[in-house]
Simulated scan of single mutants.
Amino acid sequence: MLLAVVALLALVAGPAAVNGTLAGWTDSKMSQGEFQAGSLNISDLKCSDNSVILTLLGTELQLDWEPPAGVESGRLTYEVTVVKRYLLTSETFKYETSDESFVYKETAGLLNLATYEMTVRAKPVGQWSGQPMTVNGYALTRLILRCN
């Protein structure tokens, strides 16, 4: 019996005395990796108008852009902001689309004298968003609505 007690103490206390712990083994693992931030910036933003005759009779501005590289289709929405500036005031309109294009339709009356600033920003589901891209346009009466 005494021999069994001594053997038990040697098994339990022996490794603790050598390694400073009751466990007689150690385990460690190391991992290395690299992280790179993604980009949600759209590219190649273009503006076109639907002028009919000699740049007249246009009532729409169409924006087209390329989605952020490496993002699956359908995973983003796009926020389009149109700021319409008159001589003394301005109006801001916000729209959302899941397409890589947007058509702004002017509904102002015949005496529309304004400039336009149209900004597109990619927005995934969640909190992140891309840097905005902006194009400009102008209106001179109801007959002329153009991109700069």
Results as ranks from 00 to 15, higher is better:
Cys47Thr: 09
Ser31Ile: 10
Leu110Phe: 05
Gly109Lys: 04
Leu45Asp: 04
Gln32Trp: 08
Ala69Thr: 09
Ala108Gln: 10
Ser101His: 14
Leu61Val: 10
Lys29Thr: 15
Gly109Ser: 03
Ser48Phe: 07
Val83Asp: 07
Phe93Gly: 05
Glu72Ile: 06
Lys94Tyr: 03
Lys84Ser: 14
Tyr86Phe: 12
Val82Cys: 13
Met133Ser: 11
Asn112Thr: 14
Asn112Lys: 03
Ser101Ile: 06
Phe35His: 06
Val82Asp: 13
Trp25Leu: 15
Ser129Pro: 00
Tyr138Met: 10
Ser51Tyr: 11
Thr115Trp: 06
Lys29Gln: 15
Ala37Asp: 05
Asn50Ser: 12
Lys94Val: 15
Val52Tyr: 10
Asn50His: 07
Val71Pro: 06
Pro132Val: 03
Phe35Glu: 06
Met118Tyr: 01
Ser31Thr: 12
Glu100Ala: 05
Lys123Tyr: 01
Thr26Pro: 01
Leu22Ala: 15
Thr26His: 13
Val135Phe: 07
Glu100Tyr: 08
Arg85Lys: 13
Gly24Gln: 10
Met133Cys: 12
Gly137Ala: 03
Thr81His: 02
Lys94Leu: 09
Val80Ala: 05
Thr107Pro: 01
Tyr95Val: 09
Val80Asp: 03
Gly137Gln: 09
Asn41Thr: 04
Asp64His: 04
Val120Arg: 02
Tyr95Met: 05
Trp128Arg: 07
Thr21Asn: 13
Val135Glu: 09
Met30Ser: 15
Tyr116Gly: 01
Leu61Met: 13
Gln127Cys: 05
Leu63Cys: 06
Gln32Asn: 02
Ser51His: 11
Lys29Ser: 10
Trp128Tyr: 01
Val80Tyr: 07
Ser28Lys: 10
Val103Tyr: 04
Gly137Trp: 02
Ser48Met: 14
Lys123Ser: 00
Asn50Ile: 10
Leu56Tyr: 06
Ser98Leu: 05
Glu66Asn: 13
Asn41Ile: 01
Thr107Ala: 11
Thr77Ile: 06
Thr115Phe: 00
Ala114Leu: 08
